[in-house]
Amino acid sequence: MEDKNSIREKYLEFENFLNLVGTDREQLIITLRKAQNLFGYIPRDIQSLISKKLRIPIVEIYGVITFYSYFITEPEGKYPIHLCMGTACYINKSESLLKEIKNFLNIDIGQVTEDGIFSLSIVRCFGACALAPVANINGKIYSKLTPESLIEILKKYREGRAEA
């Protein structure tokens, strides 16, 4: 958990960034990327701050955030799991992987495990269709997954034995 000074410093850094951007609506994506990189996600209060500064309705900002899978609105776990549910992965049984993850970690899409180790989200495509089904865990792509291989990978992460 971050201390209050660290959080305050991030807010100050972001406000300074917004002052440099000014009111240029064309800077929305860059501004959202800065927020995501700084906070790890884009909190509601930051969305509101961006809305006021760039004079863009918050609903429009939220629409951009939810359109791009890169942006998230909730904190992720230490090891975020992004499971592909695109056509190739779906045909190759990514739905069974999703069921297995949910059961093994006792979380649903958009949730973080109680210990804060894992979070789960789905994406529509990684562009690795020939390797389906695919998941991105902690920034690493895992391919041709089976429910069994996926659980073994998650166990390694939980035990701190996963490859970086």
Rank of each mutant, 00 (worst) to 15 (best):
Y70C: 04
N92S: 12
V123E: 00
Y62G: 10
M85H: 11
V112Y: 04
G77Y: 03
L98N: 05
I81E: 00
Y90G: 02
I109Y: 01
L97S: 11
T113S: 15
E114M: 10
I109C: 01
K93I: 06
G110F: 06
I122F: 00
I61P: 07
Q111A: 05
N92K: 15
Y90E: 04
Y70N: 02
E114A: 13
L83W: 00
L120P: 05
S119I: 03
P75A: 05
I81R: 01
I72Q: 08
I58Q: 13
I72E: 05
F104W: 13
V64L: 03
C89M: 07
P80A: 02
I91Q: 10
Y62Q: 13
F71V: 08
S94D: 05
E95Y: 14
N103W: 08
G116K: 14
G116T: 10
I72Y: 06
E100T: 15
F118N: 03
I72F: 04
E95L: 14
I91N: 07
K93G: 07
I72G: 11
N103F: 12
S121G: 07
E60W: 04
S96T: 12
I65G: 00
L105M: 13
H82F: 09
L105S: 10
P80I: 01
S96P: 06
I58M: 12
T66L: 07
L105Y: 10
I109E: 01
M85V: 15
G110Q: 07
F67Y: 14
I122S: 03
I107R: 13
F67P: 02
L97P: 11
K93V: 07
Y79E: 07
I65V: 01
F118S: 02
T73G: 13
K99Q: 13
F104N: 11
G63F: 09
N106D: 15
K78A: 09
Y90T: 07
S96L: 11
S119L: 02
I61R: 08
F67W: 12
T87Y: 08
E60D: 14
P75Y: 06
V112I: 09
T66P: 01
V112P: 01
K78L: 13
Y90H: 11
G86M: 04
Y70I: 08
L83Y: 01
C84S: 05
E114Y: 10
V112D: 03
E100V: 12
I109D: 01
